[in-house]
């Protein structure tokens, strides 16, 4: 078997608010392999969002280790973490988080800007990514001129453009109607079948049902082992 893309060992995260300590993650072990489609589910307050921040290199562990695509990111400083996010992770957010001042193409180019890629190459790669999500003809549109579903597809293109180790989707359908939800989930299915590694964070079980493996987080711990979903 290939080396895991994500390897969490004894992951703990403790928040301090004044004198109050709050353990958001209480020792999570998890391995995700290339090409897997994993869903992490759990009610709000379960530590699901903390886990997503850790996996996305947006935050660091209090103890334990996190190896992402062979790189130990658990003790990295902010600058190195920024670079790791840029190269390894493609984010899809619930709120889309597109910049309204940029065109669809400009938004997709953004991660490449921070990677220092030349404008010409940036354009080409962003265009390929937009075509992959079926929005090649909307490249010049601004987010305000696109539907919610289209906006989330632009966000998916932005997540794909750096060819990341994982696509990390945080409640990607939380702000979409049922039609767009099917649309976006279908797109994630397609990416999975094309070999992308996808980690989906959600509280909706029917969304989670699309994944190959489902991890259930409660009180900062996985409940039971990962459940393989039979298709």
């Amino acid at each position: 078997m290939a080396a895991p893309v994500i390897e969490l060992t004894g992951a703990r995260k403790t928040y301090h608010t004044g004198d109050i300590e709050f353990e958001a993650l209480r020792g999570i072990d998890c391995r995700i392999f290339p090409g897997e489609y994993v869903a992490i589910v759990g009610p709000s307050g379960s530590g699901k969002s903390t886990l997503m921040n850790i996996l996305g290199c947006l935050d660091v562990l209090t103890s334990g280790s996190y190896v992402l695509a062979g790189e130990d990111v658990s003790r990295m400083d902010e600058v190195a973490l920024a670079s790791a996010r840029n190269r390894r992770i493609g984010f899809v957010f619930q709120q889309f988080h597109l910049l309204s001042s940029l065109t669809a193409l400009g938004n997709v180019e953004l991660p490449l800007v921070y990677a220092g890629v030349s404008p010409a190459e940036r354009r080409d790669r962003a265009m390929v990514a937009l075509e992959r999500v079926g929005l090649g003809d909307k490249s010049r549109n601004h987010p305000g001129q696109l539907s919610g579903g289209q906006q989330q597809r632009v966000a998916i293109a932005r997540a794909l453009v750096t060819e990341p180790a994982i696509v990390l989707a945080d409640e990607p359908t939380g702000n979409l109607d049922s039609h767009s939800t099917r649309d976006v989930l279908g797109m994630l299915d397609d990416l999975h079948s094309e070999g992308s590694t996808i980690v989906l964070i959600t509280h909706e079980s029917d969304v989670a049902a699309r994944a190959g493996t489902v991890y259930n987080v409660t009180d900062g711990q996985f409940v039971g082992a990962g459940t393989e979903i039979a298709k």
Binding site: E78, R85, H97, P111
Partner: peptide, 16 residues
């Protein structure tokens, strides 16, 4: 704030 957060998530270093 949100734009800054997004830029950081996409790989902008604090110096950027």
């Amino acid at each position: 704030t949100r734009e800054i957060g997004l830029r950081k998530a996409l790989g902008a270093a604090p110096a950027n």
